[in-house]
Structures are given as C-alpha cells and as structure tokens.
C-alpha cells in the first residue's frame, strides 16, 4: 500500500493552499494513506488547519526553533529522518517545494519527479517539459521511494471538514547552521494571492508605465481579483517580479483570467493554460493571446478597461 508524506508549506501562521492541492494529487493514488508533516517553531494552529483537510489520515508536527523559517538545508535532514516507512514524499512545486524536495531526494539517493500534473498509477505520472510544450509520462522504480513536487495549477485544493489525528514527531537530528535566514521582503498587498485567487487580472507591456497599471488594479479590486503581469511588463520595470505570470514566473489556474495588453508569448501562455476562462483585451487582432482566449475584445485598453470597471 502507498503511504504518502506531504510536507506542508506555511508562513508561520497560515497553511499555504498549495498543501491542500498536494493532498488532492496524493488522493489520486489508489488506497494511499496520506500524512502531512508540519515543520514549524510553533505548530499548533498550522496542524489544526492541516488536520481539517479531507483525505489526511495523520498530521505530524515537528516543532523546533530552527523551523521558524523553512530553509531547505535545515528541513531536508528532518524530512529524511521522518521518511521511514513512506513510499512517497510529496511537496508543492512552489519555490518552497522546488527548493526543498530535490535536497530530500538526493539525501535519499533517488531522482525526483518534478511538477506532477496527472497521476496514472502509484509510480506513473505525467509532467510538463520544454516549458509545457510537451507532456512526458514517467515511471519511477517500484522498489524506490518516490520524491516529487506537484504542479499546484493542475489540482484544486482538497476540501476541509476533516478531523485527522495530530501527533508530535520529535526527531533527534543535528541540523546545519551554514544557512541563515536574514529577511523576507514581500510586496505585501491586500489583494488576493496571485497563485490561489479565483480571478486574476494581468497587464502587459502595452500599459506603458507603472502609473498606467492603476487601471489594472482598479479593475482587479472591482472583481476581487489578484493582479499579475507578463514578463515583458516585469522586465520593463512596471511591476515587481513576484507578479509575473508565465513559465518563468507563476503558473496559475484561476476560474477567470483577464489578460490586458498582453500579446501572449508562449512562456506566458504556459502559465495560464489551466485557467477556466481566459479573456483577452488587446489592440492587435493578430496577437497570439486570441488563439487561446475564450472571449476576445480588440481595442484600446485605456478606454476599454475603465469602461469595463464601471460596467461591473
């Protein structure tokens, strides 16, 4: 039987929704027992949130001062110490999981499967390669532990309402001190998080300046949407990089995605392929974004966007 250990992602107070998405993926492995490990300095509230996720059998808490910040170098040896008896160890393919899971895999002496998008069997999965231009079916060896990251845009978060057992899992592991957290500067905003928002409005280079992005923010606020941007807009310095949507930024799957002044480079389309409905507003009717848009509108964004904001 498959036994899956999922490494929870959190910011110290809230569980990241990526965790419940990884649970959804793990639940597709037939008959799997799913445990979630919460590494934190204080795990109480986080563990309660993890125990609420459907399909989770058990939440393991590993409370240590060193786990205040989730650094791969300090987490990996603890995950390895906890891994005994598990057939699978999963994390999200967010920057947290991408940083941590290969370190775990290497310590366990196995290759890792990156970005699971489909579960075909306990050791058989599909994953995107070549910036999503090809889908590769891979098969891990049945006698080896499967260490993998899960492409969060491919799964919706598992529902709540569960009451999994919570138990402390003290680990006697020496941790390295060679890697130290200094600080995190976040472009803190009150808007919904780009990666988990149901609606996202993105602006491209056609906006022309960071000031012009105001009309994007206004539309997003009217819709209660997260705000994203194309790589061109980020490179032009209109908005910070954490807003970038695409293969080199964030891969997202909102119910509604509105692309404004974005031509639709392949690398951008890769980041929005799984969106429910894509709306494109662009003055160039030949823009590739219209090839994937469910609803397209050709015209001047500087008049259309304010008009749309008023109409909603």
């Amino acid at each position: 039987m498959s036994k899956v250990l999922i490494i929870a992602e959190h910011d110290g107070s809230e569980l990241n929704p990526s965790t419940a998405k990884v649970v959804s993926c793990a639940a597709e492995i037939e008959g799997a027992q799913i445990d979630v490990a919460v590494f934190a300095s204080t795990a109480g509230e986080l563990a309660a949130q993890a125990a609420d996720i459907q399909s989770v059998a058990q939440v393991l808490t590993i409370e240590r001062e060193e786990n205040e910040h989730l650094l791969a170098a300090t987490l990996a040896p603890q995950v390895v110490a906890l891994s005994d008896g598990y057939s699978h160890i999963f994390g999200p393919s967010t920057t947290f999981g991408k940083d941590l899971m290969p370190r775990v895999a290497a310590l366990l002496g196995v290759n890792q499967i990156s970005d699971i998008m489909t579960v075909l069997g306990s050791h058989s999965f599909k994953r995107p390669v070549y910036a999503g231009n090809a889908v590769l079916t891979v098969e891990a060896q049945a006698d080896q532990v499967v260490v993998a990251t899960v492409r969060t845009a491919s799964y919706s978060a598992a529902a709540g309402g569960n009451t999994a057992t919570i138990s402390a899992a003290p680990l006697a592991v020496d941790l390295p001190t060679h890697t130290r957290f200094i600080d995190l500067q976040s472009g803190a905003s009150d808007r919904p998080d780009l990666q988990t928002a149901n609606r996202v409005v993105s602006g491209g280079r056609a906006l022309g300046s960071s000031e012009s992005f105001d009309i994007i923010y206004k539309l997003a606020d009217k819709l209660g949407a997260g705000v994203g941007a194309s790589r061109a807009a980020v490179d032009a310095g209109y908005v910070p990089n954490e807003m970038q949507v695409g293969q080199t930024g964030k891969i997202i799957a909102p119910d509604l995605y509105i692309a404004i002044g974005i031509s639709g480079a392949i690398q951008h389309l890769t980041g929005i392929k799984d969106a429910g409905t894509i709306v494109a507003i662009n003055k160039d009717e030949e823009a590739p974004i219209f090839e994937v848009a469910d609803i397209g509108l050709v015209g001047d964004l500087f008049s259309i966007v304010p008009e749309l904001t008023d109409a909603l």
């Binding site: 002496g109 196995v110 290759n111 499967i113 058989s124 995107p128 390669v129 999503g132 231009n133 090809a134 889908v135 590769l136 079916t137 891979v138 098969e139 891990a140 060896q141 080896q144 392929k273 894509i278 219209f290 090839e291 994937v292 848009a293 469910d294 609803i295 397209g296 509108l297 050709v298 015209g299 259309i304 008009e307 749309l308 109409a311």
Partner: peptide, 23 residues
C-alpha cells in the same frame, strides 16, 4: 535509480473562443 521516460505527447490545446465587439 532511473526515472523511466515512457512517452512524450503534445500538450492539450485550448480552442479559440468568441470575439466580442465592445464592453
């Protein structure tokens, strides 16, 4: 231990939708 590459396939494509004339 190898992770075997079984096969490659093109990604599922999205179909072109509708065009609207105005807001």
């Amino acid at each position: 231990p190898a992770i075997r590459e079984v096969s490659y396939e093109p990604p599922a494509s999205r179909e072109r939708g509708i065009m609207v004339d105005d807001v």
